[in-house]
C-alpha cells in the first residue's frame, strides 16, 4: 500500500448526502477481474450530466472529494475505492462514512477524513467561491487546510499509523500466525466444513 502523510490537491465539492456505492460505480462496471481501469465507471450515471461537477474543467483534475454525510453506503464493492483512486482521488472528506467503505479505503490508501458537517459546509462554500482551489489534508496533524479554514478531522489511530507507514494488513496478521494455529487447534469438532468430510 502507498503510504500517506500529506496531500494537497484540487478540492471537489459534492453537495450530496447518501452517496451510495452504486452511484460511485454502477454494477455494470464490476465485471472486470483487475484492480485498474475503474475510473471510467466513477459516478458513471452522474457524469452523463454535463453540469456534473467532475465534467467542469476546473474540477476535472480534483483529488480531494468533499461530500455530504453517509458517503459510501450500500454494497461492499471495493471497486468504489478503486474507481476513486484510479480517477486520481487521494482523500474523501465527509461527516460520516459507511463502515465497509471506510474499511476498504483504509486498505487501499484512500484517506477518509471525518470532519464536522459545519466544517464541510464551510469548505463547500470556500470551494464554490474559489473554484479549482487546492486543499491540504495533513494526516500527521489531522487537519484540513482550505484557504483560511483550518479544520480538524478524525481518523482512528490504527488506520492512521498504517497509512503513514504504508503497511500491508496481511503481513501484519501473519506475524501472529502461531496464535492463529493455536486457536485453530482448540476449535470444537461440531463446527462445519464446506467439503463432504
Amino acid at each position: 500500500m502507498q503510504a500517506f502523510t500529506s496531500h494537497t490537491g484540487i478540492g471537489v465539492p459534492l453537495r450530496r448526502s447518501n452517496v451510495d456505492t452504486d452511484q460511485i460505480i454502477p454494477a455494470e462496471y464490476l465485471k472486470r477481474v483487475s484492480r485498474t481501469g475503474f475510473e471510467d465507471g466513477l459516478f458513471a450515471a452522474w457524469r452523463k450530466d454535463e453540469s456534473f461537477i467532475l465534467n467542469q474543467p476546473t474540477y476535472a483534475a480534483g483529488s480531494v472529494l468533499v461530500a455530504g454525510p453517509d458517503f459510501g453506503t450500500g454494497s461492499s464493492r471495493e471497486h468504489a475505492v478503486w474507481a476513486l483512486m484510479n480517477y486520481g482521488f487521494r482523500v474523501v472528506i465527509s461527516s460520516r462514512f459507511a463502515d465497509i467503505f471506510r474499511g476498504n479505503s483504509g486498505k487501499q490508501g484512500l484517506l477518509t477524513a471525518v470532519a464536522s458537517q459545519d466544517d464541510v459546509e464551510l469548505i463547500w462554500k470556500y470551494l464554490e467561491n474559489t473554484p479549482g482551489a487546492s486543499i491540504t489534508v495533513d494526516l500527521t496533524s489531522r487537519t484540513i487546510t482550505a484557504g483560511d479554514i483550518v479544520a480538524p478531522f478524525e481518523v482512528d489511530d490504527y488506520t492512521r499509523w498504517r497509512l503513514l507507514e504504508g503497511l500491508d494488513d496481511i503481513g501484519l496478521t501473519l506475524r501472529h500466525e502461531a496464535a492463529v494455529t493455536e486457536f485453530e487447534s482448540a476449535r470444537p469438532s461440531f463446527k462445519p466444513v464446506t467439503r463432504g468430510g
Binding site: 471495493e78 471497486h79 465497509i100 474499511g103 486498505k107 494488513d169 501484519l172 496478521t173 492463529v180
Partner: peptide
C-alpha cells in the same frame, strides 16, 4: 458481515480479520 476485496484476500490468506 460483509467485507471488501482486500479483506477477502486477508481471510483467504489467514482465516482471520483484524477488527475493532
Amino acid at each position: 458481515f460483509g467485507i471488501g476485496t482486500s479483506e477477502v484476500e486477508h481471510v483467504l490468506a489467514t482465516q482471520t480479520l483484524p477488527l475493532k
